[in-house]
Amino acid sequence: MERRLCLITGASAGIGAEFARQYAALGWDVALTARRADRLETLAAELEEKHKVTAIVIAEDLAKKSAPAKILAALEEKGRHVDALVNNAGYGLPGTFFSTSWKEQGDFIQVLYTAPLELCHRVLPGMAERGYGRIINVASLAGYAAGSAGHTLYASVKAGLIKFSESLNAECQTLGHDDIHCTALCPGFTWSEFHDANGTREQTDKMPKWMWMAAEPVVRQGIEAVNRGQPVIVPGLVNKGMATLSRIVPEPLGRAMVRGQSRRFRKME
């Protein structure tokens, strides 16, 4: 019998690579997509050797509007369909809204918001036809916090993913698709290359170690949450506490707290 297939964006490193490892360990075939083909090939070889699954590599840049359709067309050519989708691709855009170009901001929105939503829209009909589907949108604890100076669109995009995931999960249940679940995974600070890529490693290395989580438990909790139909999951006790605090602290105080901490982990130039 053909194994189920999980499509993972941003699979070349960090949380995306960990999703690939955990789904492969569960016996799923995986489709890995990111810009860096060499890293994907290395990961694919590892998974096929260790778990005896099929790992499909599709090198695409989600900043290109044609990428979502091309990724799914490549799978269709191989006779495969998507049973689980992990929208993980993302990055931080250093600097302020004033200092960055609209091209940079537009690409950011395309990769972190538009492309994930398009992939969801494209895979959902097949999931509904087969009566099964799992979608994990990797959002962020930042989606709960007040907006901050620098990395201006990051929190708003992640907040949008949270609300979209809640709505889509509710929609699936309302329409009778009881085994199609959508979850927003909202990690806090997670050990990965994310902060190296956006130039904030120096700032984040000064933060207390207790604020950080490894990718493995973050991903595990995301998979467990989507399987039980939980629309939003904040992994880790510290992160859960911070998410709760963001809801109960008066908004002016919350904004002041974020403003005071922004320069510790935001690169303004």
Rank of each mutant, 00 (worst) to 15 (best):
A74H: 02
R130W: 08
V219N: 00
V111T: 10
P116V: 02
S165M: 11
R130E: 12
Y23H: 14
Q105F: 05
R263W: 04
V86E: 03
R228M: 15
F265M: 09
W102S: 15
H195G: 01
R263D: 13
L112P: 15
R122Y: 05
S101A: 13
L72R: 07
D29C: 08
E118I: 14
I8R: 04
P187Y: 01
M211R: 11
E49I: 04
E2N: 14
S148H: 10
Q261G: 14
W212Q: 04
P125W: 13
N87K: 08
Q105I: 09
P125G: 14
P68W: 09
I233G: 14
D178A: 12
L117K: 01
G241R: 08
P208G: 02
P94C: 02
I58Q: 04
H121A: 10
G260Q: 06
A20D: 07
G90D: 00
D38Y: 01
Y132H: 12
S167Y: 11
I109Y: 05
L112W: 13
L119E: 04
Q261E: 15
H181W: 03
A17R: 06
A11R: 03
L119F: 00
L32P: 05
W102P: 05
G27R: 08
R247W: 08
V219Y: 02
G143H: 02
S148N: 08
G260D: 13
E171D: 10
S148D: 09
G90M: 04
M242G: 09
S140R: 07
K163G: 13
G229F: 08
D107L: 06
L245R: 13
A115C: 05
A197M: 15
V86R: 01
Q110M: 04
S148R: 09
G160L: 05
F189G: 10
F164L: 14
F164I: 00
S12A: 06
V157I: 09
A17E: 10
V111G: 05
Q110H: 11
D83F: 02
W210V: 12
K70G: 11
G16W: 01
G16C: 05
C186E: 01
E76A: 15
L47A: 09
W28T: 01
T100K: 11
M1R: 07
